[in-house]
Design a protein around this nucleic acid. Structure first.
Length: 310
DNA sequence: ACCCAGGGTTGGC
DNA sequence: GCCAACCCTGGG
């Protein structure tokens, strides 16, 4: 067993980063990593080598401490690159801060989101399944389903006597015992057929993920929407968290209420209308603004205020 | 015991 | 475009 350590310092990225806030903000890319004794654990697959990372940070913009463990030799720059990708640390987020500052509707938003970043999936596929699972579901429930599926079917890595799991690959997923029925044991309900059928479509293409990567946001949206269980909201989540397309603006009930409250004087608007408004108005900042508005509403008490009265 | 809601999508009209 | 139905767990 090989192990090593490095840190990510604040001056290596632009803007703010808060690991815990990012990890626990309910983004549909994946469940939060395993949390134990103030540290987060996840298995990364790097050039086909499994590496367990142990990541911690004392608070906003503090040094991020990374310990890693693997059976094979790994270059710690590759681990660093992967972590930068997952937490979107290559992105100069101060552009978003400036945008918020210069738009009076969004003035209060930043102070509830200090250090919040996109929490991107290691593999687009895990994001697709997580996002399908999140539809008409609660955060608590879909994250448990996904975690349990990983433990049951994902590749296992053992470090210091403890077991960790990757998300299963497409090939494993379609071959699950009893496929759809078996999946239901994890509390995913009717979404199990969506998951399996979509996986089959992905596998039937030559390199599905690479194809999506190369497409523009708009083209990618149309293609990903063809998957079963993927409507407009889930499609945008997948594009944002799975394929790093920042123009996506996933519209759920809350984003609908918040956007109409801030920009439509509270008048009712369809999700479709809100989506196209956001893309024209926010452009490449749409994804972050959606993330920040959702979290802002959760933390500021705005959700209570916007709940419809019966 | 019953009812409701959860970061929606589907299929029917 | 609008509307009911979909599974299932946790909480009133």
């Amino acid at each position: 067993m090989i192990s090593g350590h490095f840190t990510i310092e604040n001056n290596e990225y632009f803007g703010d980063f808060d690991l815990s806030l990012t990890m626990n903000s309910g983004q549909t890319s994946q469940p939060p990593w395993i949390y134990d004794n103030s540290k987060y654990y996840e298995v990364l697959k790097l050039d086909d080598v499994n590496v367990l990372v142990e990541v911690s940070q004392e608070g906003l913009n503090e040094d991020v401490s990374v310990n890693y463990y693997s059976d094979e030799d790994v270059d710690c720059d590759i681990i660093r690159d992967k972590l930068f990708h997952i937490f979107d640390l290559n992105y100069d987020i101060t552009e978003v801060y400036d945008y918020l500052d210069n738009n009076h509707e969004l003035k209060d938003v930043y102070k509830f989101n200090k250090g919040l970043r996109l929490f991107k999936a290691q593999f687009p596929y895990e994001c697709i399944i997580s996002s399908i699972c999140s539809a008409n579901n609660s955060i608590k429930r879909w994250t448990k389903s996904i975690s349990d599926i990983r433990i049951a079917y994902g590749e296992e890595v053992k470090v210091n006597g403890k077991k960790y799991h990757l998300f299963p690959k497409e090939e494993v997923f379609v071959d699950l015992p009893d496929t759809c029925e078996g999946l239901k044991a994890f509390g995913v309900g009717y979404r199990s057929t969506y998951m399996i059928n979509s996986t089959e479509v992905i596998l039937s293409e030559n390199d599905y993920h690479k194809t999506i990567d190369k497409l523009s946001y708009y083209q990618a949206f149309n293609k990903i929407s063809q998957l079963e269980g993927v409507g407009p909201k889930v499609a945008d989540c997948i594009l944002l968290y799975g394929y790093n397309k920042h123009e996506a603006y996933p519209v759920d009930v809350w984003i609908n209420r918040i956007t109409t409250y801030l920009y439509f004087k509270g008048e009712k608007a369809s999700n479709k209308k809100i989506m196209s408004f956001a893309q024209e108005h926010f452009g490449e900042y749409a994804g972050y603004i959606q993330l920040y508005l959702f979290n802002y509403a959760r933390l500021s008490g705005l959700t209570e205020k916007l709940k419809p009265r019966k």
